[in-house]
Design a protein around this nucleic acid. Structure first.
Lengths: 116, 116
DNA sequence: TTGCTATATGCCGATCATCGATATATAACG
DNA sequence: CGTTATATATCGATGATCGGCATATAGCAA
């Protein structure tokens, strides 16, 4: 299994609570990352194609709103499972990082402790 | 500022509680990721060089143990700050992802809520 | 003694997700 | 009439990571 990069992860999170269309994903990712990640159009549509071909997301209908086409996407069951697993992993490592940073340096235990 | 990828993030976390040498980082990353990420030697040493040139880590002495050279590295003040910021960001997004997944789909609020 | 595994560092070509730019089209605002 | 927001899409360039290879010592097993 290869690495899930930040923009890809954020796209999956944007779809975690229901269907969204491309531009809506871009906006949600912007908010999700507190403005730190601006998803490029090139990245988004390439990512959507790739995730669809991997079976993690699927088309969820089209709609014309104010003369503009909206193409919706949603997570598949498999996509939800991958996102859940990836999120738990990231949560655990992030917590461990902050735990380590909050302790004085050099007090690393000799024997490996179980953090995950 | 560009994306911090998974292997790079894990190297920083491995150094979060003190100095470690290359091979020790590989082992810690393996444990940190619950065996999911096996850091390649090529990735590690390239990453260490890059992080050092960016000022996020620095050399922390050499040592010969049982006839083998160990080259140690540690976080700089700037590296600690970057890791802390990145960890908080990842923690927040991961929590939001799990929150969304645990709620029934389609009950997305019309008005943007503040989660970060 | 020959080979395998663990420890330990390092280089190099290939891959591919992301970046950045560009293109097209409608609606709204000044 | 030009700019901004909405909306989708393509394409070449970049660079972090992958996977393989090289080198060397120590310990264990066949």
């Amino acid at each position: 299994m290869s690495e899930v990069r930040e923009p890809t992860f954020l796209v999956l999170v944007a779809l975690a609570d229901g269907r969204r269309h491309g531009y809506g994903i871009i906006q949600d990712v912007e908010r999700l990352s507190s403005g730190k990640t601006t998803l490029r159009a090139g990245t988004l549509y390439a990512t959507l194609d790739r995730l669809a071909s991997e079976g993690l997301i699927e088309g969820a209908g089209e709609e014309v709103v104010e003369g503009r086409l909206r193409r919706y996407y949603q997570l598949t069951v498999q996509g939800s499972a991958v996102l859940e697993s990836e999120s738990k992993q990231r949560l655990a490592v992030s917590k461990e990082a902050l735990r380590r940073l909050s302790r004085p340096r050099g007090s690393r235990p000799r024997i490996a402790g179980g953090f995950a």
